Simulated assay, not measured.
Amino acid sequence: MNSPQHPWHKSSYSSSTGECVEVSEGRETLMRDTRNRELGQVSVSAAEWSALINAITK
């Protein structure tokens, strides 16, 4: 699932060593491993994504 309105981008929390997570944010947030895109993605609601980011940035 990807739309031109919500393209994939590397998370700002990903390291520069190639251990990257990509996200596509919209009504729901999709996450995938940059190196293993073919394995699919994890989907969470926008509220869940916001709660996760708030929890890990405190």
Rank of each mutant, 00 (worst) to 15 (best):
S11G: 07
S12P: 05
N36Y: 09
K58D: 12
E38N: 14
S50A: 15
M31E: 11
M31F: 09
T57A: 13
W49T: 04
L39M: 03
V23A: 03
H9S: 13
A46W: 11
G40P: 02
S24H: 04
Q5E: 14
E22N: 10
E22I: 12
M1I: 15
P7H: 03
S11V: 00
S50P: 09
G26P: 06
S14M: 07
S24C: 04
S12I: 05
D33L: 07
K10M: 12
G26R: 03
A51S: 11
Y13L: 06
D33M: 04
E38S: 15
Y13N: 08
H6L: 11
A55F: 10
A46P: 08
G18M: 05
A46D: 04
A51M: 00
Y13S: 05
N2K: 14
N2T: 15
S3C: 01
V44F: 06
S50C: 08
A55S: 13
S15M: 02
V21H: 07
Y13P: 08
C20V: 08
G26W: 03
P4V: 00
W49K: 02
S16K: 10
Q5Y: 13
Y13G: 04
S24T: 11
S12K: 02
W8V: 10
T17F: 00
V42M: 09
E25M: 04
H9E: 15
P4W: 04
Q41M: 06
T34S: 14
M31R: 03
E19V: 02
Q5H: 13
W49E: 00
Y13D: 01
L52S: 09
G40N: 01
S16F: 09
R27Y: 07
D33G: 10
W49V: 01
R35E: 10
A46G: 09
A47P: 06
V44I: 01
H9C: 11
W49H: 00
K58C: 10
T57Y: 08
T57E: 11
V21D: 01
D33F: 06
S24V: 03
G26D: 05
P4R: 05
